[in-house]
């Protein structure tokens, strides 16, 4: 359903964000992407809907190569790819309803959308989704009047109103408390399994990834270094993905962290003086 082949993304500075990523995803999978900051997780999912332009490689969605599309064709493809963002990315000064209905923009003309003339079918679907994510009574509030968890629910409803074939999710829980984070992850998982949707989810929190995904992909420096079920993820592999760290969390914590800190301190001081 989604096939990435030898995807390469090089920034203008010459840094490789993606260094030849080849992956294959199936319908109904919940896939978590983990890896340190700068490993290319965000770049990878942003390449799929071309918010970021890949340097080379192919992105195949349902047999169509997204990487080569332009203009209207690209917009047609985008409306079948829902996206949920890290900081919710709601249009703050629009109402909840306007935000959700903006998921239909790809299906309507400019003047209809300018005058907010959404079809009654779209409005009914939006209200259904609003009820499903538990925000029915907030439909007329402005987005900036909602709490973090509520905003992310609006973001989810907006993405689903597109009636997408797959869902790209970028750090959905990064600014949420642990309880809300779990609720949001559970909601995404439920909604995806109801619709048999593929979801590719970037996560910082390895615990959440193990809890909610069917498959975990580990990225390091733009390369896939792990791709298996959550059960196969162990400390050795975490070290391979993130680098040396104490993963057990039970060993003599103070001693280890003090050693690490001392080491880091010396390094940065040498660095500063070397650049003097």
């Amino acid at each position: 359903m989604l096939i990435l082949e030898n995807l390469i993304m090089k920034y203008g500075s010459g840094d490789l964000a993606l260094n030849g990523v080849s992956l294959r995803f199936d319908k109904g999978e919940i896939v978590a992407l983990i890896g340190p900051s700068g490993a290319g997780k965000s770049t990878l999912i942003r390449c799929v809907n071309r918010l970021v332009e890949p340097t080379s490689g192919s992105i195949d969605v349902n047999g169509k190569n997204i990487a080569s599309l332009k203009g209207t064709e690209l917009r047609r493809a985008r409306r079948k790819i829902g996206m949920i963002f890290q900081e919710y990315a709601l249009v703050e000064r629009l109402t909840v309803m306007e935000n959700i209905l903006s998921g239909r923009l790809g299906y309507m003309g400019f003047w209809k959308s300018w005058f907010r003339k959404f079809s009654s079918g779209d409005v009914a679907k939006a209200l259904n989704l609003l009820e499903r994510v538990g925000l029915s009574e907030h439909f007329d509030k402005r987005a900036d009047a909602l709490s973090g968890g509520q905003r992310q629910r609006v973001g989810i409803a907006r993405a689903l109103l597109q009636e997408p074939d797959l869902l790209l999710v970028d750090e959905p829980t990064a600014s949420l408390d642990p309880k809300t984070a779990r609720q949001i992850m559970r909601l995404i998982k439920e909604l995806c399994s109801e619709r048999n949707l593929l979801a590719v989810i970037n996560l910082h929190d390895v615990g959440l990834a193990k809890m909610f995904s069917d498959r975990i992909i580990g990225l390091r420096k733009g390369r896939v270094v792990f791709d298996d079920t959550p059960d196969e993820l162990n400390d050795t592999i975490l070290t391979e993905i993130y680098g040396e760290e104490d993963w057990s969390g039970s060993a003599d914590k103070k001693k280890v962290s003090a050693q690490v800190r001392e080491h880091k301190h010396m390094e940065s001081m040498d660095y500063a003086l070397a650049n003097d």
Partner: peptide, 22 residues
């Protein structure tokens, strides 16, 4: 805020719609 514009772009909206909504 660029991300709000990104979000509207990601729905498949045309440039004029991205301007008016984002």
């Amino acid at each position: 805020d660029k991300t709000q514009v990104e979000a509207v772009t990601a729905t498949g909206a045309a440039p004029a719609q991205v301007f008016s909504y984002g």
